[in-house]
Computed example of a mutant assay.
Amino acid sequence: MKRHKRDMSSRAYDRGYQAGVSGRSLDDCPHANEDHRQHWVSGWREGRVDQWDGLTGVSGVHKMRVS
């Protein structure tokens, strides 16, 4: 069975979340498209909040999406 690609907005959010949890800067956003950038920044913000709350590593596993 072929795997379908997720839409770019979802991927941008997921990548932004990963960047936020790992402590990367907001300036590291790779998207020029405003819609994708907005999703990336939203994910980044949630990732930063989770990092500040200590939900990194094993304690943040429940936040990961299974695809």
Results as ranks from 00 to 15, higher is better:
D27F: 00
M8H: 12
A32P: 06
R37C: 11
V66N: 08
Y13M: 08
K5S: 11
G60F: 06
R45W: 06
C29W: 03
G47H: 13
R48Y: 05
W44G: 03
A32Y: 04
N33S: 00
R15C: 11
V49W: 09
G47W: 09
Q38A: 15
S25C: 04
S67E: 06
E46F: 12
S9E: 12
R45V: 15
P30A: 07
T56F: 15
Q38H: 12
K63P: 07
C29Y: 05
P30H: 11
H4R: 03
R24D: 05
V66K: 15
S9H: 01
S59R: 09
V58D: 01
D53G: 05
D28L: 07
D14W: 04
D28H: 03
E46D: 13
D14Q: 10
G16V: 02
R11A: 03
V21A: 06
V21N: 02
G20V: 04
G60P: 09
Y13L: 06
S10Y: 08
W44K: 02
Y13Q: 00
V41R: 15
D7L: 02
Q51D: 14
S25D: 14
G60H: 11
K63W: 13
G57T: 07
R6Y: 10
G16D: 05
S10G: 07
D50A: 15
M8T: 04
A12E: 04
G60C: 05
D35F: 08
Q38E: 09
S67A: 10
V66I: 12
T56L: 12
A19W: 05
G57N: 05
M64Q: 13
A19R: 02
D50H: 11
Q18E: 06
G47T: 07
Q51P: 03
R48V: 15
S25H: 11
T56R: 13
A19Q: 00
G23A: 10
G47N: 09
W44F: 00
R65V: 08
M64F: 12
S25V: 01
M8V: 04
V21Q: 11
N33P: 00
Q38V: 02
D53E: 14
L26M: 03
M8W: 08
K63C: 11
Y17K: 12
R11I: 09
D27K: 02
Q18S: 01
R11L: 03
G47L: 07
P30K: 13
K2G: 00
L26K: 10
W40P: 15
H39F: 14
Q38K: 15
R11F: 03
R37A: 15
C29Q: 08
M8P: 08
D50S: 15
D27A: 14
G57P: 12
E34N: 03
D27E: 05
K63T: 07
M64E: 08
R24Q: 01
S25A: 06
E46S: 11
D50Q: 13
R24M: 08
E46R: 14
E34Q: 06
P30F: 01
H31P: 13
V41I: 10
N33C: 09
H31L: 02
R3S: 05
D7Q: 04
